[in-house]
């Protein structure tokens, strides 16, 4: 699970090690990446919204 989170974070940033990418494609399950990706996308939006709201005060 932790490796899925790390891979999604790497995707957010846009840089991933080639070895890790191969491993993800061979061993990981697509649904796990999609689910974690959507969830972390929401977390990211919430963080940005929080920063924007506190900055607007």
């Amino acid at each position: 699970m932790w490796s899925v989170v790390k891979s999604v974070l790497a995707a957010f940033f846009g840089v991933q090690k080639d070895a890790q990418r191969r491993e993800d494609f061979e061993e990981g399950h697509p649904v796990a990446f999609i689910a974690v990706g959507i969830l972390m996308g929401l977390v990211f939006v919430a963080v940005v919204a929080f920063i924007a709201v506190s900055a607007a005060r």
Binding site: F13, G14, V15, Q16, K17, D18
Partner: peptide, 12 residues
């Protein structure tokens, strides 16, 4: 060379 994660992280 194919990849260089450190350089890629820096230039991002």
């Amino acid at each position: 060379f194919h990849e260089h994660p450190l350089v890629e992280v820096i230039w991002t």
